[in-house]
Structure formats: structure tokens, C-alpha cells
């Protein structure tokens, strides 16, 4: 029973990680930017939700739409204000990475100045719980699962069946040939950032509703996304999702026989094992034909 409950908890954490990790991965694959400021986008979505719910008194469904749109817009804005000027100077990937960390830190500080470092809560009290015998599941777990079940297939259909979805995959595969085919790379970047940030918006809406909003809430999320992407295999989207679920499961299942103090040991031990024995990640073989 304990094991089953831990498994369910792990899948629920994994679902939330997957939303941010896949958003992060889609941006990295398409633009080759290690977008650490994805964490700031996440937090911005949380504050947008707070403003929509608490200050504008919008119904929650509308507020979530506002949060999603704000996250997407914020992601695009970071691309335009931070990465595009760096690209125009032909900066290296390392410079873009430093730029993204700078943007993350700056945004956190600005959020703290505007909203203080207090937690802003969107709701009161404990979450509704559903009991199934010995197993109990919170409403957030159920919604997280629901979002993943709906959003990921839609994302898949978008990427495989639409003109711009195909262009995103093409850009990730071979940027030079994409240009030759007439893809406007700068405009496609905006779309990629919007989609990746939208996914983070889903995750933050849930987390903000459950745990409230704080300026630095995006940082651990960012870290988890990065690890999930490495474990799952850089460059392969389902790999990032699988990596996220694996991470959530590891974190929770490690508690089965070990104390919580061992959580990091298990998770980062797994990361090291992957880096050493499967440097291409869980699904590295899917990338044998990727561009160099």
C-alpha cells in the first residue's frame, strides 16, 4: 500500500516536472539555448495567476488562461530582450547560457521587489482529498494527470501535423536547411518560446494554486527540468517527459526504504550513473540520426 501511494505521489510530481521539462526541452532543441530563465517564466506565470485571481477577482478558469498567456508572453519577451541581442552579436552558446542565468536572477530580484518575498496564497486551507481505501489523492494530483493526458497528445499532434509544428522539428534537426527552405528563424523562435513557456504556465498554475507564489519558486523547478532532460536524453521530447516522470518516481520511491535525507543521494546518484553509463540519456539511441 505504501509503495502504491508513493508510486502515485511520484507520478503526480512527475507530471508537473514533465510539463516544465518538456517546455524547457522544446526550447533547447529548437534554439540551442539552455534557457535557465524558464524558471523566471514559470514564476511570472504564478504571479499573473495571483493578480488575476486575487486582485482582478476573475473566475479561476479565466485566471488560468491569463496565467498561460502571461507565461507565453513573458517567455517571448525574454527571447526578444535577452537572447535576440546576443544572437545578433553571434554570441556563443556559453554566453547565451550566462545571459539566461542573468535573466533568471534579475527576474527573481524584480519579483521580490514588486511582490516582496512573502508567499502569496491563492487559496485557503488544505486541498480536497479523495480516498480510495488506503490510498489518498489530492485534487491537484488528479488535475496534473489530466493536463498531461490532454496537453501532451495535443502538442504531439501540433508538432507532427501542422506547418509550424513541422518547422519547429525541422529547425531542431537542421537549422541551415530550415533557412534554405524559407523558414523565418527569428519568428519561429518566438513561437517556440511561446509554446515552451505555455507548458510551464500549466505547471505553475497548479503549483501556485496549491502552494502559493514566491519569487524564487522557479529555481528548483528549473533545476529539475535540466536533470530530467539530461536523464531522458537531450534533444528528444518524449525523453524529457520520461526523464521527468522517472525523477518524480525516484524522489518518492526512494522514501520507501530510505529516509528523506537520502532523496538527493538517490536522485543525483541516478543522474551520475546516467551521465557515466548512458551519456545520451534513456533514449539516446533515438538520436542516432540527429544533426551534429
Amino acid at each position: 500500500m505504501l509503495l502504491l501511494q508513493l508510486f502515485i505521489d511520484g507520478m503526480a510530481s512527475g507530471a508537473l516536472y514533465a510539463l516544465t521539462a518538456v517546455g524547457f526541452a522544446i526550447i533547447y532543441n529548437g534554439t540551442r539555448i539552455l534557457h535557465m530563465a524558464h524558471g523566471a517564466v514559470f514564476t511570472a506565470g504564478g504571479y499573473a495567476l495571483y493578480i488575476a485571481v486575487k486582485l482582478l477577482n476573475l473566475p479561476i478558469a479565466v485566471a488560468v488562461v491569463v496565467a498561460l498567456a502571461s507565461a507565453a508572453a513573458f517567455g517571448v519577451l525574454i527571447d526578444l530582450l535577452v537572447y535576440r541581442p546576443l544572437r545578433a552579436r553571434k554570441s556563443s552558446e556559453a554566453a547565451l547560457f550566462i545571459g539566461s542565468i542573468g535573466a533568471l536572477t534579475l527576474c527573481q530580484a524584480v519579483f521580490a521587489l514588486i511582490f516582496t518575498t512573502d508567499t502569496l496564497y491563492l487559496r485557503q486551507g488544505p486541498l480536497p482529498i479523495y480516498d480510495f481505501g488506503e490510498i489518498s489523492i489530492t485534487i491537484m494530483h488528479i488535475i496534473a494527470a489530466g493536463i498531461v493526458i490532454v496537453v501532451f497528445p495535443i502538442l504531439h499532434l501540433f508538432l507532427t501535423l501542422t506547418k509550424y509544428g513541422r518547422a519547429i522539428r525541422a529547425l531542431a534537426d537542421n537549422p541551415k536547411l530550415s533557412v534554405v527552405r524559407g523558414v523565418n528563424v527569428e519568428r519561429l523562435y518566438m513561437l517556440i518560446f511561446a509554446i515552451g513557456s505555455l507548458l510551464a504556465g500549466f505547471a505553475v498554475s497548479l503549483i501556485a494554486y496549491d502552494l502559493g507564489v514566491r519569487p524564487e519558486m522557479g529555481f528548483p523547478v528549473m533545476f529539475v527540468s535540466l536533470v530530467a532532460v539530461i536523464v531522458g536524453g537531450v534533444g528528444y521530447l518524449p525523453g524529457a517527459a520520461a526523464g521527468a516522470f522517472l525523477l518524480g518516481l525516484l524522489q518518492n520511491l526512494s522514501l520507501w526504504q530510505l529516509s528523506g535525507r537520502w532523496q538527493d543521494v538517490v536522485v543525483f546518484g541516478a543522474l551520475l550513473i546516467f551521465l557515466i553509463f548512458r551519456p545520451a540519456g534513456l533514449f539516446g539511441h533515438m538520436l542516432s540520426t540527429r544533426r551534429v
Binding site: T160, K163, R166, A167, R169, A170, A172, D173, N174, K176, L177, V180, R181, G182, V183, L287, T289, R290, R291
Partner: peptide, 29 residues
């Protein structure tokens, strides 16, 4: 769109995409 088609050196393609996707992308612009 003006009618200029260019195939870069090495017969490049989008290797992780299907043949049909590659063809479809030929008409992207």
C-alpha cells in the same frame, strides 16, 4: 517564392523527420 530552389552540399535533409515531412517542408515558404 520567386522560384529559386537550392540544395546545399551533401544532399542535406531533416534526418530525424520522415520522408513525407521533408517533402512537405520543401513547400514551407
Amino acid at each position: 517564392n520567386a522560384g529559386l530552389g537550392y540544395s546545399p552540399q551533401g544532399g542535406e535533409s531533416f534526418r530525424s523527420l520522415s520522408v513525407i515531412d521533408n517533402l512537405t517542408l520543401g513547400g514551407f515558404a
